[in-house]
C-alpha cells in the first residue's frame, strides 16, 4: 500500500510538469490553432536565463562545488541585488521566454500567417532545432544543478499512510492549480479569451470586427512560452538542467494535451495526471523496464489519436471539404 502511494505521488509530481506544459500547448492552440514543437526549447532559454540570474558571478568564474561556469553571469552581475533568489530568478526566466515567444511570433509565424499548415509546422520544427542548437551554443552541453523553490531536503515530506508526499510535489501542484484557474479565467471570462476563439476560427473576420489580432496573438504566445519556462524550472529542480532534456518532456506533454483534448485546459490537467501516473505505475507493476517509462503514455496517445482524435474533453472540429 505504501509503495503504491509512493508510486502515485511520484507520478503526480511528473504529472504536474506534463500538465503545466500541456496547459501551455492548449493555450497556444486556442490562440493560434498551432502545435508548437519549439515550446520546450523556448522554455529552455528562460530556464538558462534564470540560472544566469541566480548564479553568483564568482561561482561562475570557476569556484564553488558543482557549479560549472555559466555563460552570461558577468553580463548581468552589475544589476542591483544579483545574484537573485530562486523565485525572482524564475520570474526573470518566465519574462525572457515570454518575450522570446512574442519576438518569434512577430518575426517568424506572423509572416507565415497566410501560408499552409505544413509550412507553419515546419517553422516550429525549424525553431526547435535552432533553439536547441542556440542553448548548447551559449551555455554548453554540460549538466547544471538547479535549485528548487520548495524545500527539497530528504526529510521534507508529509507521511501519508507510509507514502512520502514531498513538499516539491505539493508545491508543483499548487503552481499547477493556480495556473489552471488563471488560464481558465483568461480563456473563458475575458475579452482576450473570446478574441482567441474569434481569431482561430477566422482571423480576417476577427480583424474586421475590430479585434487587435497582433496584440491578442502576442498575449497568447507570451503566456504559453512563459509557462514553458516555469515548467523547465520545475523539471530542472527535480533533476538537472541540461540541453535537450525538454524534448522527451514535451512529447509527454503533447501526449497529456492530446489525451485531454487539445482545446481544453481542464483536459490538459487531467491528461497530465493520466500520463504521470501511467509513467510511474506501469513500470512499477508490470515487467516493463523503467527506463522506457515514456513508451506507455506515448502508445496511449497514438491509439487515442487514431480512434478519438478529439481526446477526452476536446470539442470535435468540423472540417469543410
Amino acid at each position: 500500500m505504501d509503495l503504491f502511494l509512493q508510486r502515485c505521488f511520484d507520478g503526480l509530481f511528473n504529472g504536474a510538469i506534463y500538465a503545466s506544459l500541456a496547459l501551455a500547448l492548449v493555450m497556444l492552440f486556442r490562440a493560434t490553432g498551432l502545435l508548437n514543437f519549439a515550446l520546450g526549447e523556448i522554455g529552455m532559454v528562460g530556464g538558462y536565463t534564470s540560472l544566469v540570474m541566480l548564479t553568483p558571478a564568482a561561482a561562475a568564474a570557476g569556484g564553488g562545488g558543482f557549479v560549472f561556469p555559466v555563460a552570461g553571469t558577468s553580463l548581468v552581475s552589475w544589476l542591483p541585488g544579483h545574484p537573485y533568489p530562486v523565485v525572482v530568478a524564475i520570474g526573470f526566466g518566465v519574462i525572457a521566454s515570454a518575450l522570446l515567444g512574442v519576438l518569434l511570433q512577430r518575426l517568424v509565424l506572423y509572416r507565415l500567417r497566410n501560408r499552409s499548415d505544413f509550412v507553419k509546422v515546419n517553422a516550429t520544427i525549424a525553431l526547435l532545432l535552432a533553439l536547441a542548437g542556440l542553448v548548447t551554443e551559449v551555455w554548453g552541453g554540460l549538466s547544471q544543478r538547479y535549485p528548487s523553490v520548495f524545500p527539497d531536503d530528504p526529510g521534507d515530506y508529509i507521511d501519508v499512510f507510509g507514502g512520502r508526499l514531498r513538499y516539491t510535489t505539493l508545491g508543483a501542484w499548487a503552481v499547477q492549480l493556480a495556473l489552471l484557474l488563471l488560464l481558465g479565467a483568461l480563456i473563458n471570462r475575458t475579452k482576450t479569451g473570446l478574441a482567441f476563439r474569434a481569431i482561430t476560427s477566422n482571423a480576417e473576420a476577427a480583424s474586421l470586427m475590430g479585434i487587435p489580432v497582433q496584440r491578442t496573438l502576442a498575449i497568447g504566445w507570451a503566456v504559453s512560452c512563459g509557462i514553458g519556462a516555469l515548467a523547465v524550472s520545475i523539471v530542472a529542480a527535480s533533476t538537472i538542467l541540461r540541453p535537450g532534456m525538454m524534448v522527451t518532456v514535451l512529447i509527454l506533454a503533447f501526449a497529456a494535451a492530446t489525451i485531454g483534448g487539445l482545446d481544453s485546459p481542464k483536459g490538459a490537467v487531467m491528461g497530465g495526471v493520466i500520463v504521470g501516473l501511467t509513467q510511474s505505475l506501469v513500470p512499477g507493476y508490470t515487467p516493463f523496464p523503467s527506463e522506457l517509462a515514456v513508451v506507455p503514455p506515448f502508445l496511449a496517445m497514438t491509439i487515442l489519436l487514431m480512434f478519438r482524435p478529439t481526446g477526452l474533453f476536446g470539442t470535435a472540429r468540423v472540417v469543410r471539404v
Binding site: V108, N122, A123, I125, A126, L127, L128, L129, A130, L131, A132, G133, L134, T136, E137
Partner: peptide, 10 residues
Amino acid sequence: PSLAFGLGLL
C-alpha cells in the same frame, strides 16, 4: 550544427 540546420530551414 543544429543551430545552422534550424536557421537554414527557417
